[in-house]
Nucleic acid binder design. Structure first.
Lengths: 132, 132
DNA sequence: CTTTTTGCAAACCCTTTGCAAGACA
DNA sequence: TGTCTTGCAAAGGGTTTGCAAAAAG
């Protein structure tokens, strides 16, 4: 099934590019809709998912929360602030050899992995300090 | 807030212990309810979450899926079959030093991490082979 | 008695789906 | 034209919440 190059696709990709930090599909929807009120929520969800599957954008699956998208497609990990929900990149080297190790240990054919950190972001650390 | 020792707590912990492999909260609910029809779904969700927070049981957060629980509390990783949804343990050594590295790279105070593998389980590999 | 918990049902969030109308190639 | 895609609204899965009644300490 050849994939078509629709206006919405452009708009959504562009919208994602402008939202700096790991927006959720709904945030992209809200943003895009300000300039293009006609666009449908389902289209945004479908398109982001499609682009992510094609590898054109990154998808960050968050434990217990909405998926987030990233206009940069290269693999990297993320931290999530357990106080405010903020998500940031973690520029730690990508784990090497773990997939093979996991394959050996489990018998699965491993296709990939997700590593997510939990923690408290600098801003929330500051709040804690001042309120304590 | 002192935590009380209720009948339901016992029943739920016991129910989890009997379900072998990483049941979801709803699976625990269904199982528990066979012997104790009066128990409420919300109670099961609340209790499992509570026990997990207390560290008495393990919680496996699955990308894009229901949380799963584990009566064993020690830290280990998991694989999820992208075909059938099955979840298994992966007995690979727990990552050492990544939390510190992530803290350094991000400025967060890191409290933990989650590593999840995706792949195809042995059974599904067999299906693929035979149907191809 | 006081405070935590429970059970119920309804609410909630995030996402997907069915389907007819519309847009691409 | 053929078939992808869209938009809409509704359904869906998983989990949480408000609240009065019940139970624990």
């Amino acid at each position: 099934m050849p994939t078509r190059n629709t206006v919405q696709r452009q708009i959504i990709a562009e919208g994602l590019r402008r939202l700096a930090n790991h927006p959720t599909a709904d945030e992209v929807y809200e943003a895009v809709r300000e300039e293009h009120p006609g666009i449908g929520r389902a289209t945004v969800y479908r398109t982001l998912s499609l682009l992510a599957d094609e590898g054109q954008i990154g998808r960050v699956r968050i434990n217990n929360g909405a998926d987030r998208f990233d206009h940069r497609a290269f693999e990297h990990y993320h931290v999530r602030c357990t106080h405010c929900g903020r998500v940031d990149d973690v520029m730690v080297p990508v784990l090497d050899g773990v997939d093979e190790a996991a394959a050996g240990a489990s018998g699965y054919r491993i296709t990939g992995h997700t590593l997510q950190f939990d923690g408290v972001c600098p801003a929330c650390q500051a709040c804690e300090a001042s309120s304590a």
